[in-house]
Write a protein that binds this DNA or RNA. Structure first.
Lengths: 112, 112
DNA sequence: CATATATATTGAAGGTTGTCAATATATGGC
DNA sequence: GCCATATATTGACAACCTTCAATATATATG
């Protein structure tokens, strides 16, 4: 255990460096919105069958806002889109969700 | 599996209601900041021995910013403060961290 | 009590995020 | 090609977040 000189510990090195902290907080920020969580939940529940108008009907926001959140999730690799005629069906990317979950779990383990 | 009428599924009920979604996204938002993650990490690493000036020295932000993030973490119940003379020593609240972790895990399980 | 130090609070400035109306793009049917 | 429908994009506005200098508060010491 470190010795004190005056008030402070001599040196305090974070195990979590700035870059990794940024990466994890980015992951968290993507999930940290109620509409996005509900979208992910609906996609998980009705895998592969959900189009944007389904989401628009189920959620308390308008179509451009749904599209906006879908874009954020798409760019994070958490969901994928497949066009079928007029409609675009969205699905969860279980791999990416899994990866994100493991990174978060590892972080929680350090805090535990 | 649901029948389609026109484009959309007939009804799409989120398992995750708006209130629960808000609660989880609040939890996530508290963690979704690199400085707060680094603070939690440092507190976990040096349990009970870390004062604000230690944090200020270890992190790339000024003292009022450290205090600001400490307040957010305190109000979320993730950390506690104990004054000893001039200094205030912060610790992680493992219980709250644990609770939060379990809520997030449960949510991830639904997405998995 | 005056001084010095540690931490908290306030208030201002700048940046980011969330939302929506309006508009654009893509597709299918006539 | 024209119309209707589904989704995406743009741009504007408001709300919120982050940061810091300045200031306030708390405590210890002489």
């Amino acid at each position: 255990m470190a010795e004190r000189a005056g008030c402070c510990l001599p040196k305090l090195a974070p195990r979590l460096d700035a870059a990794e902290a940024r990466r994890i907080s980015n992951d968290l920020a993507i999930l940290a919105h109620p509409i996005r969580l509900q979208i992910l939940d609906l996609l998980a529940q009705y895998q592969g069958q959900v189009c944007v108008c389904d989401l628009e009907a189920a959620l308390p926001v308008k179509q451009p806002t749904v599209s906006h959140h879908l874009k954020i999730l798409r760019e994070a690799g958490l969901i994928t889109a497949e066009r079928q005629g007029l409609w675009i069906y969205y699905s969860i990317c279980c791999d990416t969700v899994q990866t994100m979950r493991e990174r978060l779990l590892a972080q929680f383990a350090l805090l535990g």
